[in-house]
Design a binder for these strands. Sequence first.
DNA 1: GTCAAGATTCGTGTATACAAGAAGCATCGT
DNA 2: ACGATGCTTCTTGTATACACGAATCTTGAC
Lengths: 221, 221
Amino acid sequence: MDSRRADQIADALEELIFTGRFGDGDRLDEIRLATEFDVSRTPIREALQRLVASGLAAQIPRRGVFVRQPGPVELVEMFETMAEIEAVCGRLAAIRISDGALEELDAVNRRSRLSVAENDTDGYYRENEQFHRLIYQQSGNGFLAREAQRLQHRLKPYRRIQLRLRGRLQQSMAEHLAIVAALRSGEADRAASILREHVAVQGEKFHHLMAYLKTQAPSGI
Amino acid sequence: MDSRRADQIADALEELIFTGRFGDGDRLDEIRLATEFDVSRTPIREALQRLVASGLAAQIPRRGVFVRQPGPVELVEMFETMAEIEAVCGRLAAIRISDGALEELDAVNRRSRLSVAENDTDGYYRENEQFHRLIYQQSGNGFLAREAQRLQHRLKPYRRIQLRLRGRLQQSMAEHLAIVAALRSGEADRAASILREHVAVQGEKFHHLMAYLKTQAPSGI
DNA sequence: GTCAAGATTCGTGTATACAAGAAGCATCGT
DNA sequence: ACGATGCTTCTTGTATACACGAATCTTGAC
């Protein structure tokens, strides 16, 4: 699909940052990466620029680009922003959603329930992602939907991990059902506030999880 | 400040796109731009990638990058998104704003009033920009503030032009005063809804202006 | 021994050279 | 005459070479 080497490298680097292989402040050495990816510096530089544009890294002129993992404060801010944007999507979707999309949401929730039964967090997260994406799209605003998806992608590793907390899967599932109910009945404000809480609570849960992990092992994600 | 040639070029190109010197669908020829900016293709390519990342241009592999001016539909979507995000900022700011910031907003509004008196749309827009930026910052969420500012920057040319409509300056001014009043009294929902309308109406006004200009002259902005 | 200044080295930023795919054009066949 | 196929040319994508600034190391002075 994408024959540009630089784009593949950008995705690979993003994954490496997400999985914590590159820690905060690490310099992304062009030459080193070039040899590792067996490619010249040119595509590496293009990939790095993409990372900088996404906010995953910061560039200091003549010094290089450095990984920029969000700290606790920024993570809270990102989750709050995501919560608000999802709330907006939900409020608009409650007015504009199509019957077909409601059916799709039901279908996603049926599949989600199976994942919950099997305690399959990865499977659940996949369905969860689709669930939210559908709502973005049903906001009837393509631009907003793209922005929401961009943010979702950025928060993906953090949204994912908090599902491992005991009871979180069931709670999330229940919230999804409530959201669909509100959308179906066209209760815009109710859909918005449930969605806002649904996402905000993810931030809090993630926060708790981080605090907990810190007491257990001082390693990264 | 920024010694990187590529960044300067990116800004210059952005300006050229904003001012309509490059129309929708125009190919941004690397070689041509390189000779025009008297520079090699390398910084040009980096600049183009930045444009693509901002959404101002689209890249087709092995074909080049093409200017992507938003059409009427996308503009409406962008204004709606901006309106919702500003509403969120306003709601949060109503709770979190500092006394000092309220003073600053008053000061900005005083300066704005002078621009209104002189019918100085450019001056008014500068103050207007600052007014909104202050509210973003007072949302107490740095991440949200940056996102809002990014969107504001993207919409700048369109927000600016609609101020030329007769009576718009006075109307905008009145709305700003109402917004500060709501923020000062901590009426979160009221601040949000005024801000939402304040921005949404800009989209509508811009739309009207475009429709009007289209009847007058078939040129670009 | 410590600090400062110069030299050296290393890495980014830019220019240029090379590779490869896409578009346009000409020629050949039907 | 029209269409298809191969060639040519042009442009992007990648590699390499060069320039310049930053950081470090060394050396000398106090």
